[in-house]
């Protein structure tokens, strides 16, 4: 007779092969913020892609919802060491938003309501790797988690998935964002534990 069951450990089918080194599986959804939570009304919301030549492409909330919607089912990994498996989102692929954008830029900076920024290679935002999401787990994305819409780039540490996102600026060179300026890794691959600059 087993006196200790797996249930005592609180696991719900977690797969260790899906947890990057140095991470643990979280079953809640921690809220991490660097300032007051912006409260953005969808009537006032807009998403803008600005190219390196200054050309801007913008979508209102209704226009954004009218684009092709995708349902990414992904694992997410925060640099503060929690990972959350099997998360469900609804949103628009960055590929869709960039479809009519002419650019030769290699990098992008995501800008958020509230002033947060993060930088990514453009090739990490395309080819089905990134979305602007507005729904989490079947519900409108809560403001604490970045609603009305956030960037979702699940293959990089979650600080790259900017909450309250309002736009992407395409840039020829790499321009470090909020945490990247402050000592965090420029790229942030959780499988290579690229937490800090120099890792």
């Amino acid at each position: 007779m087993n006196l200790i069951t797996r249930g005592f450990h609180g696991r719900r089918g977690g797969d260790p092969a899906r947890i990057p080194p140095g991470q643990y599986e979280a079953h809640d959804f921690p809220v991490l913020s660097v300032g007051p939570t912006p409260r953005v009304d969808t009537d006032d919301w807009a998403f803008t892609v600005t190219t390196e030549t200054g050309t801007a492409h913008s979508w209102t909330w209704d226009e954004f919802l009218g684009l092709a919607q995708e349902r990414p089912h992904v694992d997410i990994h925060c640099v503060t060491r929690w990972s959350k498996l099997d998360t469900d989102w609804v949103g628009v692929s960055v590929d869709t938003l960039l479809a009519d954008v002419e650019s030769t830029a290699d990098y992008a900076v995501a800008h958020s309501y509230g002033g947060y920024t993060t930088n990514l290679p453009l090739e990490d935002l395309t080819d089905g790797q990134a979305w602007i999401v507005h729904t989490f787990d079947g519900e409108p994305l809560a403001a604490e988690h970045g609603g009305p819409a956030r960037l979702l780039v699940p293959h990089l540490y979650f600080w790259k998935s900017a909450k309250w996102v309002k736009g992407l600026t395409l840039t020829p060179g790499d321009e470090p964002g909020f945490w990247e300026q402050a000592g965090y890794h420029d790229y942030g691959d959780p499988w290579r534990e690229q937490r800090y600059r120099g890792d």
Binding site: L32, P36, V79, T80, W179, Y184
Partner: peptide, 20 residues
Amino acid sequence: DGPGLVARCPGCAVLVLRLV
């Protein structure tokens, strides 16, 4: 509770300090 400490002004919430 984020990746580092972020301090803001109590008057205007401007970013004052980041420490990692």
